[in-house]
């Protein structure tokens, strides 16, 4: 556990050195958030209520989505975990010598990165949203803690998915295609471009059960206090997120062992 904490701290520190990039990131996320919000405001000006969502709900969800970008890296169209590059170049062999599990080590590092991203990029972006638009902020400590738990689970799912994409490198010569699909399709089915409530109900309800929705739609609904979450409320939403986190991390552990056995055999 001490090792993991050290790796976590290192991930956090490493990203704190990119100051210009952090400022640039806040700017970019805010611009996208604002454009997206204005489109939705125009829609809701024509029709004030759509499937239980109003303008404030939709704009809040937009900024939740922008806030969580650096937590979940949902829009990565290129490998956003160095693991992918290490697998490609074969440097992964030295990682396997560590006394900690491969997934645990990378998870700790990525959570460090996500923590930095949430505090220095996500929250400022959300604040820009609060200043410019009518955005819901969590009322009370309880709601805040539940939302924070949801963000944490979103970070776990974001990592687990990217870890699995990276592992593809063991079987494919080049995993860039997988990443491209993730970055271009993921945000749409997560409810980042448009809240899933605006989708045709059958499609929206289906997408809501997938892990991508757990990275934007579900946290947003938990923040908004929606009662049509899977399971009926915030706890149901957290349960869904927890389930996906467990399933994906479990898959990661299993595939790591398969892949490393393969790599060891190949390496002779």
């Amino acid at each position: 556990m001490r090792v993991h904490f050290a790796v976590y701290a290192r991930g956090l520190r490493r990203h704190s050195t990119y100051r210009a990039a952090t400022v640039a990131g806040v700017l970019t996320n805010s611009v996208f958030g604002a454009i997206n919000a204005m489109v939705l405001l125009a829609v809701f000006a024509a029709r004030p209520r759509i499937n239980g969502y109003d303008a404030t709900d939709a704009v809040t969800q937009v900024f939740v989505g922008q806030m969580l970008i650096t937590v979940t890296m949902i829009i990565s169209i290129a490998p956003s975990l160095d693991l992918a590059e290490r697998i490609r170049t074969g440097e992964i062999a030295s990682d396997l010598l560590r006394p900690v599990s491969l997934q645990g080590w990378w998870l700790a590092q990525d959570l460090g990165r996500a923590t930095f991203g949430l505090v220095f990029r996500g929250l400022p972006t959300f604040l820009v949203g609060v200043v410019l638009f009518d955005v819901v902020i969590p009322d009370g400590v309880g709601r805040s803690l539940v939302f924070l738990a949801s963000v944490f689970l979103a970070a776990l799912i974001g990592f687990a998915l990217r870890y699995l994409y990276s592992l593809c490198g063991f079987w494919m010569l080049d995993s860039r295609g997988v990443w491209a699909i993730n970055g271009l399709v993921g945000p749409v089915i997560a409810g980042m471009l448009l809240p899933l409530a605006l989708f045709p109900p059958t499609i929206g309800d289906m997408l809501r059960l997938l892990p991508w929705a757990c990275m934007v739609q579900i946290p947003a609904e938990i923040l908004l206090g929606k009662d049509d979450l899977p399971g009926g409320g915030a706890l149901g939403g957290l349960a869904l997120q927890g389930l996906w986190a467990a399933v994906l991390l479990g898959a990661g552990t299993y595939l790591t062992s398969v892949a490393t056995r393969r790599a060891v055999i190949q390496g002779g």
């Binding site: 169209i77 010569l173 860039r176 295609g177 970055g183 271009l184 471009l193 448009l194």
Partner: peptide, 22 residues
């Protein structure tokens, strides 16, 4: 890297189509 190229083209196309859907 034909597989990657095909997947990336597919991803880009799907990305545009989902935006059209939006």
């Amino acid at each position: 890297y034909p597989l990657s190229l095909a997947l990336m083209s597919l991803a880009v196309t799907t990305g545009v189509l989902t935006q059209v859907g939006a």
